[in-house]
Design a protein around this nucleic acid. Sequence first.
RNA 1: GGCGACGUGGCCGAGUGGCUAGGCACGGCUCUGCAAAAGCUGGUACAGCGGUUCGAGUCCGCUCGUCGCCUCCA
Length: 501
Amino acid sequence: MALKVYNSLTRRKEEFRPLHEGRVGMYVCGPTVYSDVHLGNIRTFVSFDVIYRYLLHLGYKVRYVRNITDVGHLEGDADTDAEDKISKRARLEQLEPMEIVQRYMNGFHEMMHRFNNLDPNIEPRATGHIIEQIQMVQDILDNGYAYVVNGSVYFDTKKFQDEKGVYGQLSGRNLEELMQESRDNLKNQQEKRHPADFAIWIKAAPEHLMRWPSPWSVGFPGWHLECSTMSTKYLGHTFDIHGGGNDLKFPHHENEIAQNIGACGQAPAKYWLHANMLLMNGKKMSKSDGNTITARQLFTGDSPHISKPYSAMVIRYFMLMAHYRSTLDISDRALQAAEKGYQKMMNYLRLLDEMQPAQFAAEATPAGEAIRRLIRETHEGMDDDFNTAVAIAKMHELGSYINKLHARQLDFSQITAETWDELKTLFRAFIGDVFGLRSEQEQADRDEQALETLMDIILQLRQKARAQKDWETSDKIRDALAKINIRIKDSKDGSTWERIA
RNA sequence: GGCGACGUGGCCGAGUGGCUAGGCACGGCUCUGCAAAAGCUGGUACAGCGGUUCGAGUCCGCUCGUCGCCUCCA
């Protein structure tokens, strides 16, 4: 069965056919790094990570681009008295905007790794592509789909719609209605010709920290522009998959499409994929009414919403239990169920590796056929718009066979060697490569290994200091390590270390 | 107000008009020194009403309810 994906643009499942045989270009809207990454964000990135992983599993050569928004994302009344999210945070904390960006970008990366998301192939930043963005604004102006007012440049939505007729296609919106409705909250929008127009270059107010020279003013790019520019730069005018959270459909993605077509006449992506929201208590998480929980709180268990800590892998598994286009309601009970399910799943894999079968069946058997059918259905689940819920369900059914084989309730003479191999191959590939699940023990082992490597290096450096009678450095290292419960023991033969309880 | 999505057994959650989704929790049984794990097994769900159909959780309509987007949001 061929891979099918649900295309938000056509509102249908379509057979996936990449533009270039064997290759896939995928762009996913990344975070604006002005605060800690929120759990809902994490769900979206986990969803697209699995999509990326599955495409790789199918043998595609994928270029996965996920941006970092570090300028231009406004909050408040758009286009006028609005403030850039990063600038605002910088002002409040009295830091350089780039310090804010660096801090939260680091935190974002750490969290992505903790959830075992693969790194994208390219992670471009908006501030690193100002020149390209200015060029795109110029292209749009040259094509007549934008106009300059007082140093700011606005996209001419009405003209674009009159000539191209595609504005609103993705989000199912009618431009006429949009213009009507926005008339009520028109305040401070005198610069725009039409309420639905949006800024692509914004003249910076004197106190605005992030600013670049351009032909129109010293200013900064509009938020929607960066994705248009960077996807074009790294994936071409038209590429295969564009992803993001459901709430970005409008206006962000709608405007992105308008900009791309306005600049070069081509729509950016063939397939638009949108991940649904993560809910808590049946509602979208929101910081303002306390209906929120952070990943860190889940790890520590420090939240009134949960009874105990949950690991990143359990949370990842929990997310995979639902389809990415469905809303998912997080709760303590659901997480507990996920934890059990996750442990069970990892146990199947362990049993598969441990068992040493002898005496296979020579030819097809009913049990073997049932197993092979389930294996096929697992693949079909993923082929059907990345339905991880179905794939996991089928694997649990297969897991039951694995348990039976292990408990000798089903004998290896009931399946063929080939079936056994397929079963092993499936579990290894799906749990690790596709779902990106790893055992927490494995993680701990890896940390332990890293610690040993680090300690080797530290002891070598300290040994060098001691050889030079640099007692200050050597003692400093020993004292610092003692504080984190690592004891150094010096002897004639050199130094060793151990943990103290 | 406009656009859209959804309402599945105690909980989470799949579901292409006809065949047991799955996980968790709960009950019974097997195994077991005890426990756990595992296996077998049980409750017979699709918001309500009407329609289409030989047949609907799945299609259509209405009602009720929930949620999202429409301003920044993954």
